[in-house]
């Protein structure tokens, strides 16, 4: 059976740390960093990579367009 796997990349310097992407993720992939970016915001990052299904909910709700979403189909 084919399996879908996703991954996201966050534009760390554009992120304002609003956490709306963390709330929107259905599989709890995202968390906020301990470090801050140059603006002083904690930024979103993948904390649980394996759970990402590439649904793009995080990217769609991000007010600042910081998230790019990638998806692959893996044949098993």
């Amino acid at each position: 059976m084919a399996k879908i796997k996703g991954a996201v990349s966050v534009n760390v310097e554009r992120c304002k740390g609003c956490e709306l992407c963390v709330v929107a993720c259905p599989t709890h992939v995202l968390a906020m960093s301990k470090q801050v970016n140059a603006k002083g915001y904690r930024y979103a990052m993948m904390a649980n990579e394996d759970a990402c299904i590439g649904c793009a909910s995080c990217g769609i709700v991000c007010p600042d367009g910081c998230i790019s979403v990638y998806k692959v189909k893996i044949e098993e």
Binding site: G6, V8, L20, C52, P63, D64, S68, Y70, V72
Partner: peptide, 30 residues
């Protein structure tokens, strides 16, 4: 397969429209 293997241009399914430029928007977070 790691995130690094997946994050490749050919696998991109969502990103900011390029018409929204790279200027930081002055709006409050969220």
């Amino acid at each position: 397969m790691t995130a690094q293997d997946i994050i490749k241009p050919e696998n991109l399914v969502y990103s900011k429209p390029s018409l929204l430029n790279d200027n930081t928007m002055h709006y409050c977070p969220g």
